[in-house]
Protein backbone atom coordinates (compact mmCIF):
# COMPACT_ATOMS: atom_id res chain seq x y z
CA UNK A 1 0.00 0.00 0.00
CA UNK A 2 1.00 3.58 -0.50
CA UNK A 3 1.67 4.53 3.13
CA UNK A 4 5.22 5.81 3.14
CA UNK A 5 7.14 5.68 6.39
CA UNK A 6 8.65 9.08 5.70
CA UNK A 7 5.35 10.86 5.17
CA UNK A 8 2.83 8.92 7.19
CA UNK A 9 3.28 9.21 10.95
CA UNK A 10 1.14 6.16 11.61
CA UNK A 11 3.38 3.82 9.62
CA UNK A 12 5.81 2.52 12.18
CA UNK A 13 8.24 -0.07 10.93
CA UNK A 14 7.79 -2.94 13.34
CA UNK A 15 10.74 -4.10 15.27
CA UNK A 16 12.44 -7.15 13.71
CA UNK A 17 12.48 -8.78 17.15
CA UNK A 18 8.71 -8.51 17.42
CA UNK A 19 8.36 -10.00 13.97
CA UNK A 20 10.46 -12.96 15.08
CA UNK A 21 8.08 -13.52 17.96
CA UNK A 22 5.16 -13.40 15.53
CA UNK A 23 6.89 -15.97 13.33
CA UNK A 24 7.22 -18.26 16.33
CA UNK A 25 3.47 -17.97 16.96
CA UNK A 26 2.73 -18.65 13.30
CA UNK A 27 4.92 -21.73 13.45
CA UNK A 28 3.10 -23.00 16.50
CA UNK A 29 -0.30 -22.64 14.80
CA UNK A 30 0.79 -23.89 11.36
CA UNK A 31 -1.80 -26.18 9.80
CA UNK A 32 -4.22 -25.93 12.72
CA UNK A 33 -7.81 -25.22 11.71
CA UNK A 34 -9.49 -22.08 13.05
CA UNK A 35 -6.15 -20.53 13.97
CA UNK A 36 -6.62 -17.08 12.47
CA UNK A 37 -8.30 -15.40 15.44
CA UNK A 38 -5.92 -16.79 18.11
CA UNK A 39 -2.95 -15.83 15.93
CA UNK A 40 -4.30 -12.29 15.55
CA UNK A 41 -4.88 -12.05 19.31
CA UNK A 42 -1.31 -13.07 19.98
CA UNK A 43 -0.02 -10.75 17.29
CA UNK A 44 -1.85 -7.87 18.94
CA UNK A 45 -0.32 -8.93 22.23
CA UNK A 46 3.14 -8.76 20.67
CA UNK A 47 2.84 -5.45 18.85
CA UNK A 48 0.23 -3.77 21.03
CA UNK A 49 -1.85 -3.39 17.90
CA UNK A 50 -1.97 -4.97 14.44
CA UNK A 51 0.42 -3.19 12.11
CA UNK A 52 0.02 -3.69 8.37
CA UNK A 53 3.31 -5.56 8.05
CA UNK A 54 2.22 -8.05 10.70
CA UNK A 55 -1.10 -8.65 8.94
CA UNK A 56 0.66 -9.28 5.66
CA UNK A 57 2.94 -11.75 7.42
CA UNK A 58 -0.05 -13.53 8.97
CA UNK A 59 -1.87 -13.71 5.61
CA UNK A 60 1.18 -15.09 3.86
CA UNK A 61 2.10 -17.64 6.50
CA UNK A 62 -1.46 -18.88 6.89
CA UNK A 63 -2.04 -18.90 3.13
CA UNK A 64 -5.10 -16.69 3.47
CA UNK A 65 -6.10 -13.74 1.30
CA UNK A 66 -5.11 -10.42 2.83
CA UNK A 67 -8.66 -9.16 2.36
CA UNK A 68 -9.98 -12.05 4.45
CA UNK A 69 -7.53 -11.33 7.28
CA UNK A 70 -8.45 -7.64 7.14
CA UNK A 71 -12.13 -8.57 7.18
CA UNK A 72 -11.69 -10.50 10.42
CA UNK A 73 -9.64 -7.68 11.97
CA UNK A 74 -12.31 -5.15 11.01
CA UNK A 75 -15.17 -7.29 12.29
CA UNK A 76 -14.01 -7.57 15.90
CA UNK A 77 -13.85 -4.44 18.02
CA UNK A 78 -11.07 -6.08 20.04
CA UNK A 79 -8.60 -5.73 17.19
CA UNK A 80 -6.93 -2.42 16.47
CA UNK A 81 -4.84 -1.42 13.49
CA UNK A 82 -3.77 1.81 15.18
CA UNK A 83 -0.98 2.01 17.77
CA UNK A 84 -2.59 2.12 21.20
CA UNK A 85 -1.79 3.69 24.51
CA UNK A 86 -0.02 2.06 27.41
CA UNK A 87 -3.39 1.27 29.01
CA UNK A 88 -6.51 0.24 27.12
CA UNK A 89 -9.80 1.30 28.69
CA UNK A 90 -12.83 -0.65 27.49
CA UNK A 91 -16.28 0.54 28.41
CA UNK A 92 -18.90 -2.17 28.34
CA UNK A 93 -21.84 -1.34 26.11
CA UNK A 94 -23.57 -4.67 26.57
CA UNK A 95 -27.26 -4.52 27.32
CA UNK A 96 -27.06 -4.55 31.12
CA UNK A 97 -24.24 -1.99 31.32
CA UNK A 98 -25.91 0.16 28.69
CA UNK A 99 -29.20 0.43 30.60
CA UNK A 100 -27.42 1.00 33.92
CA UNK A 101 -25.51 4.04 32.73
CA UNK A 102 -22.65 2.72 30.61
CA UNK A 103 -23.25 5.52 28.15
CA UNK A 104 -22.75 8.15 30.86
CA UNK A 105 -19.54 6.42 31.98
CA UNK A 106 -18.28 6.52 28.44
CA UNK A 107 -19.19 10.20 28.13
CA UNK A 108 -17.31 10.96 31.35
CA UNK A 109 -14.22 9.17 30.05
CA UNK A 110 -14.43 11.02 26.76
CA UNK A 111 -14.59 14.34 28.58
CA UNK A 112 -11.83 13.46 30.95
CA UNK A 113 -9.39 12.04 28.40
CA UNK A 114 -10.47 14.41 25.63
CA UNK A 115 -10.45 11.58 23.09
CA UNK A 116 -13.13 9.74 21.16
CA UNK A 117 -13.77 6.00 21.03
CA UNK A 118 -10.94 4.30 19.13
CA UNK A 119 -8.49 7.10 19.89
CA UNK A 120 -5.41 7.40 22.06
CA UNK A 121 -4.45 10.30 24.33
CA UNK A 122 -1.61 12.49 23.01
CA UNK A 123 0.65 11.29 25.85
CA UNK A 124 -0.05 7.71 24.61
CA UNK A 125 -1.06 6.68 28.12
CA UNK A 126 -4.69 5.68 27.42
CA UNK A 127 -6.73 4.32 24.53
CA UNK A 128 -10.51 4.43 24.79
CA UNK A 129 -12.60 1.61 23.37
CA UNK A 130 -16.02 0.11 23.81
CA UNK A 131 -16.70 -3.59 24.41
CA UNK A 132 -19.70 -5.88 24.22
CA UNK A 133 -20.18 -7.58 27.60
CA UNK A 134 -17.51 -8.85 29.95
CA UNK A 135 -19.88 -11.45 31.35
CA UNK A 136 -20.23 -9.41 34.55
CA UNK A 137 -23.74 -8.08 33.99
CA UNK A 138 -24.63 -8.30 37.69
CA UNK A 139 -21.93 -5.70 38.37
CA UNK A 140 -23.08 -3.24 35.69
CA UNK A 141 -21.98 -0.78 34.58
CA UNK A 142 -18.45 -2.08 34.12
CA UNK A 143 -15.26 -0.92 32.48
CA UNK A 144 -11.96 -2.70 32.10
CA UNK A 145 -8.48 -1.20 32.12
CA UNK A 146 -6.00 -3.65 30.68
CA UNK A 147 -6.88 -6.88 32.50
CA UNK A 148 -8.66 -5.33 35.51
CA UNK A 149 -12.43 -5.01 35.56
CA UNK A 150 -14.10 -2.20 37.56
CA UNK A 151 -17.65 -2.77 38.77
CA UNK A 152 -20.59 -0.40 39.35
CA UNK A 153 -18.62 2.49 37.95
CA UNK A 154 -20.06 5.95 38.53
CA UNK A 155 -19.12 8.74 36.16
CA UNK A 156 -18.02 10.92 39.10
CA UNK A 157 -15.52 8.29 40.24
CA UNK A 158 -13.69 8.01 36.92
CA UNK A 159 -10.87 10.34 37.99
CA UNK A 160 -10.19 8.26 41.06
CA UNK A 161 -9.89 5.06 39.04
CA UNK A 162 -7.58 6.60 36.47
CA UNK A 163 -5.26 8.17 39.04
CA UNK A 164 -3.70 4.80 39.76
CA UNK A 165 -2.53 4.59 36.16
CA UNK A 166 -0.70 7.89 35.91
CA UNK A 167 3.05 7.60 36.41
CA UNK A 168 3.99 8.56 39.99
CA UNK A 169 6.31 11.45 39.00
CA UNK A 170 3.92 13.16 36.65
CA UNK A 171 0.95 14.62 38.47
CA UNK A 172 -0.53 16.01 35.25
CA UNK A 173 -3.35 13.56 35.56
CA UNK A 174 -4.59 15.05 38.83
CA UNK A 175 -4.49 18.58 37.59
CA UNK A 176 -6.31 17.48 34.52
CA UNK A 177 -8.94 15.79 36.66
CA UNK A 178 -9.77 18.87 38.73
CA UNK A 179 -10.51 21.04 35.78
Amino acid sequence: MAADAATCPCAQVPDAKLMERLDAVLKEYKGKPGALIPVLQQAQGIFGYLPEAALHRVAEAMNKPYSEVAGVVGFYAFFSTQPRGKHVIRVCMGTACYVRGGKKVLEALRQKLKVDVGQTTPDTLFSLEVARCFGACGLAPTISIDNDVYKRVRPAKIGEILDAYYPKAAQGGKAHGKR
Binding site: K64, P65, Y66, S67, E68, A70, G71
Partner: peptide
Protein backbone atom coordinates in the same frame (compact mmCIF):
# COMPACT_ATOMS: atom_id res chain seq x y z
CA UNK B 1 -13.11 -16.99 -3.11
CA UNK B 2 -14.59 -20.31 -4.07
CA UNK B 3 -14.85 -20.29 -7.85
CA UNK B 4 -11.61 -18.40 -8.49
CA UNK B 5 -9.73 -19.00 -5.21
CA UNK B 6 -8.46 -15.41 -5.36
CA UNK B 7 -9.96 -13.88 -2.21
CA UNK B 8 -9.62 -10.28 -3.36
CA UNK B 9 -12.85 -9.13 -1.76
CA UNK B 10 -14.42 -9.89 1.61
CA UNK B 11 -16.90 -8.20 3.90
CA UNK B 12 -14.95 -5.54 5.77
CA UNK B 13 -16.08 -4.07 9.14
CA UNK B 14 -19.49 -5.05 10.50
CA UNK B 15 -23.15 -4.15 10.80
CA UNK B 16 -24.23 -1.04 8.94
CA UNK B 17 -20.57 -0.19 8.36
CA UNK B 18 -20.03 -3.35 6.31
CA UNK B 19 -18.36 -2.77 2.97
CA UNK B 20 -17.78 -5.60 0.50
CA UNK B 21 -14.33 -5.05 -0.92
CA UNK B 22 -10.57 -5.36 -0.59
CA UNK B 23 -8.72 -5.00 2.71
CA UNK B 24 -9.19 -1.73 4.64
Amino acid sequence: NHLQSIGGIFPQKRGFQTVIGPAF
